[in-house]
Nucleic acid binder design. Sequence first.
DNA 1: ATGCCTCAGCTCCTGAGA
Length: 256
Amino acid sequence: MKLATWNVNSLTVRLPQVLDWLMINPVDVLALQELKMTDDKFPFHAFQQIGYEAHCFGQKTYNGVALLSRSPATGVTRNIPGFADDMARVISAYVNGVRVIGAYFPNGQEPGSEKFEYKMNWLKGLRMWVREELAMNPRLVLMGDYNITFDDADVWDPVGLKDAIHCTEEERYHLRALIALGLHDAHRLFPQMPKSYSWWDYRDFGFQRNRGLRIDHILVSNALKPLVSSCVIDKNPRGNERPSDHAPVVLELLQP
DNA sequence: ATGCCTCAGCTCCTGAGA
């Protein structure tokens, strides 16, 4: 079973690239973030034609998430129960006996800002909920655009970006607190190339110079950890014309 | 350099992203 996550930065612009990618990478589940479209615009038919069921949680202009799956998705929930939020950031479902959560974590803009405060509150709300979900569903995957780096290895310029947004101790505390619930960063379960990133700035040839951050993550529960056979970042679509600034991350699970 | 790209929208500038 393969699961993937991809921040597409507008599904309107990126739909042809997502369809092409799925033809080459026929994953079982794909979580999308930053659709930037309302549900009435969501291209259900295009995904259905290549064998995917889709559930979306859209929003005008900003945010918006979706889950695509080859097998039926059940128990679909939107956003974080118990955490009031105007923004469409989370969608979850059961697929093939796995609880799958796709999430677009808040950006936070700048430490000390109102948006940073919202990010901290959101992270706490997420953790409270994921703790309950894990208790009910030992087989759980939490994947998406976290907008947080784990440590300096995830940052192209850890000196210049020390305490910058995505790299602050407060954000990393929340990320470690998620891990402490009994989750594992699938990427780090395997040897990886140094300077492996999932996002590169559009400006200043960030991708060509590999000036990036690893902020898109796939966390797996204790029960799933022994089943993980690989976790790779697919840099290929970042080299497309009109690419998303994020690359897909792909997890492979050995189904027992 | 309060910019550099890219995207959406009450669209010819502004806000947001990261």
